[in-house]
Write a protein that binds this DNA or RNA. Structure first.
Lengths: 349, 349
DNA sequence: TGACAAAATTGGAACGTTCCAATTATTTTG
DNA sequence: CAAAATAATTGGAACGTTCCAATTTTGTCA
């Protein structure tokens, strides 16, 4: 029942040529005669030959394994799921295959998984680093000449390329919009304060408040897990403040959805009684009710660009670290109140 | 800058032993003396040696590549993302690494991706088949002795193991519950009618209607894409019927969320004006507002069980196809109205 | 101490491919 | 038609590991 492996030598024998010729056919080399090529291809199909990349890769130490490692910190977050899908698209059509692993923010897992991927000879790595990842964790990779692209989060001091979104500008735009709608007390909800992404978005939030002539009060910044449940918790804390905010920029869309849930639990209608703005623009943001106003990051597109960047580096051979900041744009939907609401609110003053 | 690869021979030279001994150390063989083992391990660390699984795998044709292929049909659906996370957990801790690919329901993609995985020598495959997958697509795999486990969806005629959930029983339980709440016109919303999962759930829905003495009307069955957007569309069609339903069993949670969105767009409150039940129990079901009554499938647990099943087959060497039907249970939350609502409704009759 | 057993180590072949240099077959050219 | 050029094919070495059988070292016992 256990079939013997069909090798290039079996093909050669059956087709009456040498193994070298078969190898050339496999590589679609122009050196081989059309007739021979056809004959060999027929035999390949007949015998059900399966190319052994492991063996090939062993011989050509310089050449590439056609495997790309992808390590993300939270695949259950649909932002990352979509990112992975975007990566997969370009990786697949470039003839690569992706190792995808989830670390769940565990540094140990991340170490293990990267080590394992190295043993398998990945030709590049896309990493959305777990919290607390240090430059030294990536050192061996770059020393071995394996191109690495960080995505979403950066690792300070690591000499690798990165693709992150313009968190500061996005947050700034969102808060400016809220201020323009007449909101005076705008909260910042959710996210882990010890991440770079958090600081960047917070910075944009603060700058925008100042630019709008509003006071940046410390207790309007409420961290939480960057999840739906975290959003519920954060909005509850916000609503229990002495002076309640009337609007919030949320760390990401998951938090924003949670905030909407928390508002409803308090009989407040998001978009009417309280303005909510998210960050990321995950796929559900458009169809949710109310449709979520959010800073669009286009995770899938981001995944595609990341993969392209990595492939470029793999093909170039040498990797000059390149830091790309993807632009973002505010998508105004229903969750922050419409212009009509704004007029109403102004009329009340 | 491009570092030479450190091989087992370099280690041997540096440690003053033979390559065979180094190999034994790598395999943690009890044959090697403690002192020698320690010495070799030191050198391994010093030189930054990276094990080459490709080479090892080439030699031991019988042994396994420590790679498991995972192919899902829609990673942007959080059900599958969670499934993948569950698989990843047990796969990782068994020392394997997973190739994860997304087909997006494309049979071509699926073919390509499986072929590519075979070339890389996967030692097993977990497949949530794209729509229209046929037994013949899996034939070569099983002929090559590669264990395959289908998950979520079955492929008729394929002699491979499978792990699906008890769709019929789940749908039956959900509809019975709705009927018990006093609903007489219960719709079935969403899903592609040409899938086995759809038929199974529909069958459970119909049986439950009959058991409850209700009429199963054809136009209360409304298919759509199994997504949030599909749910919006389906519920809209349901509400435009001459005799409107008052409750719906949705194909999955995504559809159910969409249905809630669609209801709100019509100024109907899910759980109050219309009862909604989902299927899957994705992570957001608990925290959504209203919390979703749904048939809990525990996607992550399902992923774990699937991976365990596959690993068992890999280790056993031979694979008797084994069909497991995972039990499900109805989780009653807010989206279908409470017992109190039921009393009210009965009082009105 | 010599004989034997047990423990530890070792060189070489093998896995399936690609690359190189060399060879053979075919075509072109003067 | 011979010589040169070009096209097509080929055998053998190499990639980094594991396995096998053989060898060397160490330990035990009479």
């Amino acid at each position: 029942m256990v079939k013997e492996r069909v090798t290039v030598i079996d093909i050669a024998r059956a087709a009456g040529v040498s193994k070298s010729t078969v190898s050339l056919v496999l590589q679609a080399s122009p050196l081989v005669n059309e007739t021979t090529r056809a004959k060999v291809n027929v035999v390949i199909r007949e015998l059900g030959y399966v190319y052994n990349r492991g063996a090939a890769n062993l011989r050509q130490s310089n050449a590439k394994s056609k495997i790309i490692g992808v390590v993300v910190n939270d695949l259950t977050n649909s932002f990352f799921a979509e990112l992975a899908v975007g990566i997969d698209m370009v990786v697949q059509s470039a003839g690569y295959v992706q190792f995808l692993a989830n670390t769940g923010e565990s540094l140990d897992r991340q170490r293990e998984v990267i080590a394992s991927m190295r043993e398998h000879g990945i030709s590049g790595l896309i990493l959305s680093p777990a919290r607390g990842t240090e430059a030294s964790d990536l050192k061996p990779l770059v020393a071995a000449g394996i191109p690495v692209v960080n995505v979403v989060r950066q690792v300070v001091g690591a000499k690798v390329s990165s693709l992150i979104s313009d968190n500061q500008a996005g947050a700034h735009a969102a808060v400016t919009h809220l201020a323009g709608l007449g909101h005076r007390r705008i909260a910042f909800l959710g996210g882990f304060p010890d991440t770079a992404v958090f600081s960047e978005r917070l910075q944009g939030y603060r700058d925008a408040l100042i630019d709008a002539g509003l006071e940046a009060s410390e207790n309007l910044v409420i961290g939480s897990a960057p999840s739906r449940a975290g959003g519920v918790a954060a909005v509850e804390r916000a609503l229990s403040l002495a002076v309640q905010p009337t609007a919030a920029l949320c760390f990401n869309d998951a938090v924003a959805f949670g905030a909407c849930d928390g508002l409803r639990a308090r009989r407040l209608e998001p978009g009417v009684d309280f303005a909510v703005v998210g960050f990321d623009d995950v796929i559900e943001a458009k169809t949710a009710v109310p449709a979520l106003t959010t800073v669009s990051v286009d995770p899938q597109g981001m995944g595609r660009r990341t993969a392209q960047l990595l492939l470029k580096q793999i093909n170039a051979g040498k990797a000059d670290a390149e830091a790309i900041v993807g632009s973002v744009r505010l998508v105004i939907r229903q969750s922050c109140g419409s212009a009509a609401d704004k007029r109403e609110r102004l009329a009340l003053i």
